[in-house]
Write a protein that binds this DNA or RNA. Sequence first.
DNA 1: TTGTATGCGTTATCAC
DNA 2: GTGATAACGCATACAA
Lengths: 332, 332
Amino acid sequence: MQRRPTLADVAERAGVSRALVSIVMREAAGASEQTRERVKRAADDIGYRPDPRARRLRQLRTNLLGLTFAAGQEFHADLVDGVYVAAEALGYDVVLSAVTPHRDEVRAVRTLVDDRCEGLLLIGPAQRAGRLAELADRVPLVVLARRVRGVDAVRSDDVAGARLGVEHLLGLGHRRILFLDGGGAPGAVERLRGYRRAMQHAGQPELIRPGGLTEREGAAAASAIVASGEWPDAVFAFNDRCALGVMDVFIRSGIAVPQDVSVLGYDDSALAGLAHINLSTLRQDAAGLAAGAVQRLVGRLEGPADGRDERAADLVREPQLIARQTTAPPTR
Amino acid sequence: MQRRPTLADVAERAGVSRALVSIVMREAAGASEQTRERVKRAADDIGYRPDPRARRLRQLRTNLLGLTFAAGQEFHADLVDGVYVAAEALGYDVVLSAVTPHRDEVRAVRTLVDDRCEGLLLIGPAQRAGRLAELADRVPLVVLARRVRGVDAVRSDDVAGARLGVEHLLGLGHRRILFLDGGGAPGAVERLRGYRRAMQHAGQPELIRPGGLTEREGAAAASAIVASGEWPDAVFAFNDRCALGVMDVFIRSGIAVPQDVSVLGYDDSALAGLAHINLSTLRQDAAGLAAGAVQRLVGRLEGPADGRDERAADLVREPQLIARQTTAPPTR
DNA sequence: TTGTATGCGTTATCAC
DNA sequence: GTGATAACGCATACAA
């Protein structure tokens, strides 16, 4: 027998009906303990594993959650992990669909819809809000790590995070705090707003330069700072990668961190925690965000039928300040 | 009609049989051009998309390739992209299964087998060779980026890569070349061997220290070097991350790269190419490796029935030297 | 060229 | 508690 054993094979071997095997495999009610034992033995003996395709085909529901993510991005990976955990706890399976250089988001979403996922989770989607709203109109959808008008979203409170960061630096005694903006990246507007509000509230001047998302851009910004000859007390970078680029250029230029300038990142990526880097940063609660998104999506799926016209939710979670070695009181 | 349209709905709307719709949707022979047109129109009108589950259930083959990978790892992401591309070219779909902190490899593999994938692609699996051989015995399997005895594997030629690196440094005029070993990591044994062979061939003394896979370990190794007071001409690190740790400590210690010491990495990760880092390194051809693995796997699936006892293949591809700014002729 | 009938592996409904 | 039977959406052999 080259083909894989089916439920019918188990039934034959155990000498019971297929219906009973189904009941036993699903741990459903309606079978005696003795029968259960026999069926399980038979299933194990021939190495039977239920076919999810056939199961989902027969059931009205697929119990499938589709998830798009950018392969290779650390923060996305953390969210994927969290989604797996949260979905399993609620009895759902997860179908992954990666966004890569040769496979765009539209395509990633299409495969998930074709696979009959009941709901979609999109991590940091790049599509414009209008498209996402259209999509959300056709299939239950929750966006992760980005705010989209008219669509359910779960994300960090970037305004609060940036404010936390500024308050940390102010608390250390810094005054001239330079913010490196993230341009059009998700969360950039909010982080900038948080910075500005906190600085205004403290009565300090706003120092803002274009930063970016990568080490390269951070390095460029730092070079500009060095060239200007006028250093700030502290640099608050849009994210960790940008902060690393800044630190790299500073150190090569003989500017000590944190003695001469404090540097603060955002994301608490894996690099930030390394012993020789020890970057102070703000941590987003990936597991919490993932759980929140899954719960929201499942809530829509299992909620009251009249809830479909419910207004889109925008769930935010507070980031957490991780003070390491790159921020310290001014030494001057 | 809340439920999704089925093939039968299309048939009804187009006024033809379901078999004809099936023929048209599969682009199979046996339908007139006129009918094709009408069916396609009807399908588009009601937004019909075939159900892959039902399709695969009916067919003897699923045309599914299962792929495990570590979410968040850049090199894995490159391979995932390559697998998507190569699989599509051969008419296969890819099912992703991530290995994360809360989801181990065994589990990732199980879901793929349950989903009736015809063959499995494992990127850098952590299981010991014996387990993998057992698995390969039950399902067609190709391991990517690791060598496993008795199992099909596609990987870079790490011996050749290390040799290339050493020859590059020798060619620049360096003699005292220190190699930072990767311990038990995949490819570590081969890279060490390549280094030793090249050094022996050149009649130079072998300088070997324990390195590691991360910035942290690279930094530790560099600290030891600095403390010893005796610098080599060049440091050849097990991988880019290790090399970055080395450079970080060197620069902080006032040792200029490449003026005082050349540093060579391995992997050509995204960080290596950044303007302010510009790490010389060895590039693995991710797309080529992925394509090779997919071709090998599909070859097994579609190959002659008597080929199942074929000996396991070990396909290697040559890495490529990327000479950037961290390696240069000695200035002394 | 087109239509009919059957089965893929499972679950759900109904009898017994 | 247990078993027969239909149905999920689709593809295929075969008949028309």
